[in-house]
Amino acid sequence: MSEKLFLITDEVISIQEVVDKVVHPNAGAINTFIGTVREMTKGKKTIYLKYDAYVSMAEKKLAQIGDEIQERWPDALVAITHRIGRLDITDIAVVIAVSTPHRADSYDASRYAIERIKEIVPIWKKEHWEDGEKWMGDQLEKTPYPTGKPEGEHLS
């Protein structure tokens, strides 16, 4: 896999490889978030998903999230890999690893990263059901914040 801290890939994600990118002697915690493909959403059964991305811009926006995290939590190290292409139920779609000196910040920064991904990173999910398919969007049901920071309500 790639050495890049912020990566879009069409291959299976190795959790360990993402975690290894944030290992540091000053870290007292590494928080790992693993986003997986869920079968049931509001009573509807997903057969599989397809993810598409504007790859070059998506990697830049993931890096921007890393920068935003380091502004808020200066000692944090962040690595994010998001998979695209066809994913089946239980497959890993995204792995976020954050290391910080103390554990509380690692949880907060990880949460910040996943919420921000859902706002600004150009990746799209197409749901495939038994009786149809649809590109999903606006999961937050809010206007995204292209340049600004999400407010507290987005993190709660």
């Binding site: 986003g35 993810y51 991305a53 504007y54 811009m57 998506a58 998001h82 779609a93 995204v94 996943i114 991904i117 859902k118 706002e119 600004i120 990173v121 150009p122 990746i123 799209w124 999910k125 590109w135 999903m136 969007g137 606006d138 999961q139 995204p144 292209p146 340049t147």
Partner: peptide, 23 residues
């Protein structure tokens, strides 16, 4: 990301980004 009033010039690459659904 840009605003509606920004200017696009020759050789620029414009992308329409519908509401995202990654993660």
């Amino acid at each position: 990301y840009v605003e509606d009033t920004d200017v696009v010039k020759s050789d620029d690459i414009v992308a329409l980004v519908p509401p995202v659904s990654g993660g």
